[in-house]
């Protein structure tokens, strides 16, 4: 476990509170979150539905603006950041969603290129080469010009991973990337994420319900009712025994 504290964490959250709604309907969804994630760490976040996992993920990714507390991504404070700063912060991240969210009108390679185009520093040719290499990496080298409709669920999710990772992001954020996949495809997808992130030195924050993939984590954090309750791998494992079916024999 490379869980030792670093002087320069990639994600650094302190006393973060978050509220939804206005006035009387205002409801607190995150309570005093403190979390540091170091470079290269793979952190899984678990918790029941409605515990605030996704809200935390959207805050970290710059999709929502943080309201109070401190949220530093790559040393940049996102709490109170302008819309423009948030847009720029988003470009440091690679996203993998539960649904693949590939663009139906774009082929696999064009979808992956969209992950590069946002940076505005590559030529069309460079983008095509890199995207092709990335798809090769996720074993879809022979499906470059396929439209998403002609790919299987696992293949689509691999294209989505290629899109997220093609620009070598410092942080990879994933929201239940295996939820829509069968166990083998899910396993493949997670292994792939782990392998690529290791190669690129990316940090991964992954929200999941899927017990089958907990083993890829360096660390597991558990969120319950908007509070971070556990911070250790072993305790989570005890919470969610994976060997339960065997006991019934």
């Amino acid at each position: 476990m490379n869980n030792q504290p670093s002087t320069n964490p990639v994600i650094s959250i302190h006393n973060l509170d978050h509220y939804f709604g206005q006035g009387e309907l205002r409801k607190q969804v995150l309570f005093d979150i403190n979390l540091e994630i170091n470079r290269g760490e793979i952190v899984l976040m678990t918790g029941p539905s409605g515990s605030g996992k996704t809200t935390l993920l959207t805050l970290v990714s710059g999709l929502r603006s943080a309201q109070s507390g401190s949220l530093k991504i790559l040393g940049k404070e996102l709490c109170g950041a302008s819309q423009d700063e948030l847009v720029k912060a988003r470009r440091n991240n690679g996203y993998i969603f539960q649904a693949h969210n590939l663009h139906r009108s774009l082929t696999a390679i064009q979808n992956v290129q969209m992950g590069l185009e946002v940076h505005g520093k590559y030529t069309q040719l460079e983008m095509r080469d890199r995207a092709a290499a990335m798809l090769e990496h996720v074993c879809l080298g022979d499906r470059l010009d396929y439209y998403p409709d002609n790919l299987s669920g696992g293949q689509k999710q691999r294209v989505a991973i290629a899109r997220a990772l093609v620009s070598h992001p410092a942080i990879v954020l994933a929201d239940e990337p295996t939820a829509a996949l069968d166990s083998k495809s899910g396993r493949d997808v997670v292994n792939l994420m782990q392998k690529l992130a290791r190669e690129q030195g990316s940090t991964i924050l992954l929200v999941t319900h899927d017990n089958r993939i907990l083993d890829v984590a360096d660390r597991i954090v558990h969120l319950e009712d908007g509070k971070l309750v556990n911070n250790s791998l072993s305790e989570i494992r005890r919470d969610k025994p994976t060997s339960l079916p065997k006991l019934s024999h």
Binding site: S61, V87, R90, R91, Y95, F97, N101, L102, R104, G115
Partner: peptide, 15 residues
């Protein structure tokens, strides 16, 4: 029809 894709693009950092 493309709302989800557009939202994805926004999440990726497109303006």
């Amino acid at each position: 029809d493309h709302m989800a894709e557009y939202a994805t693009f926004k999440a990726m950092g497109y303006r």
